[in-house]
């Protein structure tokens, strides 16, 4: 039995990566759930909105790096993030003006919005490819590790190393700050309250003097901020590749639906449920069990439930289970 080493392996390969990934999914799912709760449709262009925000941030990061401005140990992208958010905000407001507002005025069916968002998805995807291409690009710079595996081993004398990458630590901190800010905004400010009222009952909110265009404006701005932040954090953690953002659509929607579409706390819960299951199910637990099992009982196999390539199957499986057994999600979203 070697509980400490087993714990370190588990932390290093499951808990820390899953927490960082969960925070990214949670931010993404918050955006999806806000669009659903207030604008009442599932936005298929969301993944490409994230890609767009991350792209602008990457371009500004390059400009800053070229000008010799960095954040020292922290990634420069953090400095460029506000610009990315601003640009994405302008773009999503532009698409709302050009596309969605017309259908809102017509009181079109949700599926019309989905199809419209399909068009927006094509355009945004095209713009990102036109501007930056499809190659893999590195967004991160600065110090790579907060604690590297070797430092940890030297520090504790354990056999196993524990690495905490800057991007992972940063993801968790930034996500925490963003969530606190969002919830304070939603509960403490007048605009936030009117957004929640709108999400609960749009007609009643309008009767009570809530200005619909204002609610829509703030929703899109918040969505732009969330999508860009999630996209940049994911890009810092892995790398920036336009196509991966499209593929994030599935886990992000799964997180939002599992938590309950339209419920912000549910989106956060859903993000972590999806991330931990995805990492947990596709991780080979051989080394963890190896430390825990008595001598001679060490497993031969990898102890991996599913190969990593099936991570889609995990988010999808959870999505299906929740939809079949608890159709409104874990936290009871706005609409069944």
């Amino acid at each position: 039995m070697d509980v400490l080493n087993a714990l370190v392996v588990l932390m290093n390969f499951v808990i820390i990566p899953a927490t960082a990934y969960g925070a990214q999914l949670a931010l993404g799912a918050l955006g999806v759930t806000l669009i659903y709760g207030i604008l009442r449709f599932s936005n298929l262009a969301y993944g490409d909105t994230m890609a767009f925000g991350a792209m602008v941030t990457l371009l500004v990061t390059w400009a800053l790096q070229a000008a010799g401005i960095t954040l020292g140990p922290l990634p420069t992208a953090l400095l460029a993030l506000p610009v990315g958010i601003l640009a994405t905000g302008l773009v999503v407001l532009g698409t709302d003006r050009a596309v969605y507002r017309f259908y809102r005025g017509q009181k079109a069916a949700p599926v019309t919005f989905i199809i419209a968002s399909l068009g927006v998805m094509f355009i945004m995807n095209g713009i990102v490819r036109l501007v930056i291409g499809v190659e893999d690009r590195r967004l991160a710079d600065g110090e790579r590790f907060i604690i590297s595996a070797r430092e940890f081993r030297d520090m504790t004398g354990l056999e196993e190393g524990l690495a905490l990458r800057t991007s992972q630590g940063l993801t968790i901190v930034v996500a925490l700050v963003a969530v606190v800010l969002l919830f304070r905004f939603l509960t403490r400010t007048r605009t936030g309250t009117s957004m929640r009222a709108w999400s609960d009952n749009a007609d009643l909110a309008q009767l009570s003097g809530v200005n619909p265009e204002r609610v829509v404006l703030y929703t899109w701005l918040i969505v732009a901020a969330l999508a860009t932040t999630a996209g940049v954090l994911y890009g810092l953690d892995k790398s920036f590749k336009p196509f991966t953002y499209f593929q994030l659509l599935l886990p992000i929607f799964a997180a939002a639906i599992v938590g309950g579409l339209g419920s912000p706390p549910g989106a956060i819960l859903g993000g972590f449920v999806i991330a931990f299951s995805e990492v947990g199910v596709t991780y080979a637990f051989r080394r963890v069990v190896g430390y825990l099992a008595p001598e001679g009982w060490r497993p031969d196999g990898l102890l991996q439930l599913l190969s990593t390539d099936y991570k889609f199957a995990v988010s999808f499986g959870i999505l299906l289970i929740v939809l079949v057994f608890r159709p409104r999600g874990l936290m009871r979203g706005t609409s069944a």
């Binding site: 599932s42 599935l250 929607f253 190969s307 099936y310 889609f312 999505l319 299906l320 939809l323």
Partner: peptide, 28 residues
């Protein structure tokens, strides 16, 4: 049998996922 009872949005996401899984199976 499992997914058609769902609303249009959910069906869209569910089928999106199924397609990815089918491709993952073919790839692996």
């Amino acid at each position: 049998k499992t997914a058609l009872g769902l609303r249009s949005d959910y069906l869209a996401i569910a089928t999106l996922g199924i397609a990815e899984i089918i491709i993952a199976v073919l790839k692996n």
